[in-house]
Amino acid sequence: MTGSGTTIAFWPDADIFETTQCSFAVLAKRFREVALLNRGLSISLTDERPLGGPQLVRFRFSGGPRDFVALLDAETGAQVPPDVIAFEREDARMAGTVDVALSWSGSREEQVRTFANSVPTPQGGTHTEGFRAGVAAAVTAHARQRRLLTAADPDLTADRIGEGMTAVVSVKLDRPEYVGATRGELGGADVHDGVEQAVREHLGSWLAQHPEQAAAVIDRIVQATHQE
Rank of each mutant, 00 (worst) to 15 (best):
A138W: 01
L102I: 03
D99N: 15
T157N: 02
A25H: 06
R66G: 09
E75S: 15
Q197L: 13
D193M: 11
V169E: 08
Q213H: 08
T76G: 15
V98L: 04
D174W: 05
F131P: 07
P211Y: 04
A14G: 14
L203G: 09
R132S: 13
H127I: 06
V222M: 08
T20S: 14
I43P: 03
S107Y: 02
A141G: 12
G5K: 09
L203S: 09
G164A: 07
A215D: 14
P54C: 03
E185R: 15
A78H: 12
A214I: 09
F115G: 09
T225I: 11
V112L: 13
Q21V: 14
L56P: 00
P122D: 08
W206T: 10
R108F: 05
A35W: 00
F87C: 05
F131E: 05
E48I: 02
G204V: 05
R183S: 13
T157D: 05
P81E: 02
S118C: 02
Q55M: 14
T6D: 06
Q123A: 15
L203W: 03
R32N: 08
A138M: 05
G188L: 03
G63P: 01
D155Q: 06
V169K: 07
H226P: 00
H210N: 15
T19D: 13
V195P: 07
E196T: 04
V171T: 14
G187H: 02
Q55I: 12
E228Q: 13
I16D: 07
A137Q: 12
A136D: 06
A78W: 09
R144I: 06
T20K: 12
V34K: 00
P65T: 10
P122E: 06
F17I: 02
V84P: 03
G52L: 04
D15G: 15
F68R: 11
E212T: 14
V112P: 02
V112T: 14
E48K: 08
L37S: 00
I221P: 06
W104S: 13
F59N: 02
A143W: 04
F87A: 06
F31E: 00
E48N: 07
T150M: 08
T166V: 03
E109L: 11
N117I: 03
Q209C: 05
F87P: 02
T2Q: 12
P211D: 07
I218D: 06
G204T: 07
A116S: 10
T97F: 10
A14V: 11
T225N: 10
T150H: 12
G184D: 14
E75A: 15
V98R: 02
V26K: 12
F131S: 09
T182G: 11
R220T: 10
L156Q: 03
I16S: 12
E212K: 14
G3R: 04
R146V: 06
P65I: 04
E75M: 09
G130K: 09
I218G: 12
L72H: 06
F115E: 01
